[in-house]
């Protein structure tokens, strides 16, 4: 087993619960108690209405592909063995958009399209960090 060579998230005070949930294979989002909108990424202040009256909600983990790319030239040596790989922005059914990878599909343009339904999957990369990724639903 070779060492994990890609960038590893370092949880920050406002994101510890997000990464803790991911470790349990759950996707949690922040949600505003005033404007009632869920948002990504986790922070204590709502980026939509600027209220600090916010909470956490569990996401269904379902969404659709908002956009994607197929990366051939790895921007970091850690991704060299993966290229070509699929990056995407997924629009969650809960509202917010989340940056991610689409996994479990041959990375060719004809296999993917904007609007395709996707479902969260979890990839454990270290004892502390598990990354939410998505597969075609």
């Amino acid at each position: 087993m070779t060492e994990y060579a890609k960038p590893i998230p370092v949880p920050q005070p406002e994101s510890e619960r997000y990464w803790e949930a991911a470790r349990r294979e759950e996707l949690w989002l922040r949600s505003c108690l005033d404007c009632k909108q869920a948002y990504f990424y986790p922070r204590d202040i709502c980026p939509n209405c600027h209220s600090r009256n916010t909470d956490w909600i569990r996401s269904s983990g379902k969404g659709t592909i908002y956009t994607f790319a197929i990366v051939h030239r790895a921007p970091h040596p850690g991704f060299g063995p993966d290229a070509p790989y699929i990056t995407a922005i997924v629009e969650l059914d809960d509202g917010p958009r989340i940056p991610t990878n689409i996994v479990g599909v041959d990375p060719k343009p004809e296999n993917l399209d904007i609007g395709m339904p996707v479902q969260v999957v979890f990839e454990k990369i270290t004892d502390e960090i598990t990354l939410p990724k998505f597969k075609l639903a």
């Binding site: 998230p9 370092v10 920050q12 990424y41 921007p75 989340i98 940056p99 990878n101 990354l131």
Partner: peptide
């Protein structure tokens, strides 16, 4: 660094 780079959105 937390939400994009780990996915190779770099």
């Amino acid at each position: 660094a937390q939400y994009e780079a780990p996915y190779g959105i770099l």
